[in-house]
C-alpha cells in the first residue's frame, strides 16, 4: 500500500515489477493511467497545470488507499499522482491494484479513481492554444460516481 505525489514521470512497468517481485499469491494486476487530453470542449489545449496541497495530498491518498484495501481485500496497491505543468499526452495519474482474482482488482481501481477525483486536493488549470486560461470545474459526474460507492456501503 503506497501513495506518492511527484513531479517526475512514472514508469508503469517498473512500478508493477516492484509490486509483484518475489510474490506468488497475486493472481491479478490492474493498472489505470490517466493522460492529459489535447482538447477541452472542442478547444485545443496547450498545457495543463496541476496544483496540489502538499502534505494533505499524501495523507488523503493514503486514506483513500487504506479504504480500498479494507473494502476489496487487496494484496497491494499503489497510487502515483503528479503535479506541475503538463502537455497533452503526458501521464499524470497511476493506480495499480493487486489481488488474488481479477474482480476485486478491477473494482478497487475504479473505486480509487472515483475517490481520488472527489477527495484528493488537486486542481487543474487549462491553458489553451489561443492564450486563454481557466480552472477546470468539478464535474457533477465525479460526485455521482462517489455516491455509488457510498450507497453500496449502506446496503451491506
Amino acid at each position: 500500500m503506497a501513495a506518492r505525489v511527484q513531479r517526475e514521470a512514472f514508469d508503469v512497468t517498473a512500478e508493477v515489477s516492484a509490486l509483484t517481485a518475489g510474490r506468488s499469491d497475486i493472481g491479478s494486476v490492474v493498472t489505470f493511467t490517466g493522460l492529459v487530453r489535447g482538447e477541452a470542449d472542442g478547444r485545443a489545449l496547450r498545457s495543463l497545470t496541476l496544483e496540489h496541497y502538499p502534505d494533505m495530498t499524501e495523507a488523503e491518498l493514503l486514506r483513500i488507499d487504506a479504504e480500498a484495501r479494507d473494502r476489496f481485500g487487496l494484496l497491494g496497491s499503489l497510487v502515483v499522482h503528479r503535479y506541475g505543468e503538463f502537455e497533452p499526452g503526458d501521464a499524470i495519474v497511476l493506480v495499480v491494484t493487486l489481488s488474488r482474482h481479477r474482480h476485486s482488482a478491477f473494482e478497487a481501481a475504479e473505486f480509487l479513481m472515483d475517490y481520488l477525483k472527489s477527495r484528493a486536493p488537486f486542481w487543474k488549470k487549462e491553458a489553451f492554444a489561443d492564450g486563454s486560461e481557466r480552472w477546470v470545474d468539478a464535474r457533477e459526474s465525479d460526485g455521482s460516481a462517489l455516491a455509488r460507492w457510498t450507497a453500496s456501503a449502506t446496503q451491506k
Binding site: Y53, M56, A59, E60, H81, K117, A120, W123
Partner: peptide, 28 residues
C-alpha cells in the same frame, strides 16, 4: 480542510493550527 483533513463548515476551529480554503477538487 482543517489541519489537512476535509471538513464541513460547522467544524470547530478551536485547537487547529491550519485551515485551508479551496474550490472543489479536480484531480485524477
Amino acid at each position: 480542510a482543517l489541519d489537512k483533513v476535509h471538513v464541513k463548515p460547522a467544524a470547530p476551529i478551536r485547537g487547529a493550527q491550519e485551515v485551508a480554503f479551496f474550490p472543489p477538487v479536480t484531480g485524477g
